[in-house]
Amino acid sequence: MTPILETRGLNKTFGAVTAAKDLNVRINKGEIVGVIGANGAGKTTFINMVTGYLPPTSGEILMDGKAILGLAPRAITRAGLARSFQVAQLFPELTVLDNLVIALAAAESPHPSFLKPLRTKARVAKAEEILAEFKVAAYRDARVTAVPQGSRKLIDIAMAMIGNPKMLLLDEPTSGVSVDEKGDLMDTVMAAVRHHGLTVLFVEHDMDVVRRYVSRILAFYSGEIIADGPPDAVLADERVRELVTGHSDHKPAANAGAREGSSVA
């Protein structure tokens, strides 16, 4: 079977820093893959490379067997590979409804219309349906700036799912969300994932969350994948215990508030 996503010998260096080293990943249809690793282990770099935001130094990226390396993020999105973000990437001064309606219109056509109204009845109805599915309907007319963090992350993920992607990459869906909200958030997301039959790869620091949802784990350590397999096997692995999960199950707080717009060092 051709994997949905495959990377071959993917490398990325920033000056002297190696952010990705010989990454060979094959993800098949229907898999729910968890990615674990400390901050700076190269998880986000991996997602950024796969979705065209960062060019890798070398390597190949294939989707359904076709090379997607060098395509712009928009082309990769249209090809069916969608993503969410560590810090929810929304349109802060627009209403939640408009955020979704814009995403719906974008999914319909890459060439938006100049004079036909964006907010059609059909799009609004569809957006409301999505808002309900993601349990954020109460914020329909609120601006994003007035929406709490957890709901923003849900909206972010909802927007990623709108184009009916073949595969979804979730970059720390629960970061910045309080501990008691995490479970609900993931339940909502995973219910939607199952409903749409999506293949998912998600980055997560909380091992309880990972254990509960995934069928497979990729463990990252300083740009390398040090373990790849079923959750029990990976979490029992000596190196993973020592280098990834050993110190604590809790994610260090520092990354949670990563500021938008700050520079990449």
């Binding site: 935001y53 928009r74 999105t77 990437q89 929304l90 627009l94 219109a105 974008a106 964006l118 184009g163």
Partner: peptide, 19 residues
């Protein structure tokens, strides 16, 4: 409306599949 969206967050517009 997409112009406003670009003002708000260009990265997201790109990831919605638009240029």
């Amino acid at each position: 409306m997409t112009c406003e969206a670009i003002r708000e967050n260009e990265v997201r517009v790109e990831y919605l599949g638009l240029s």
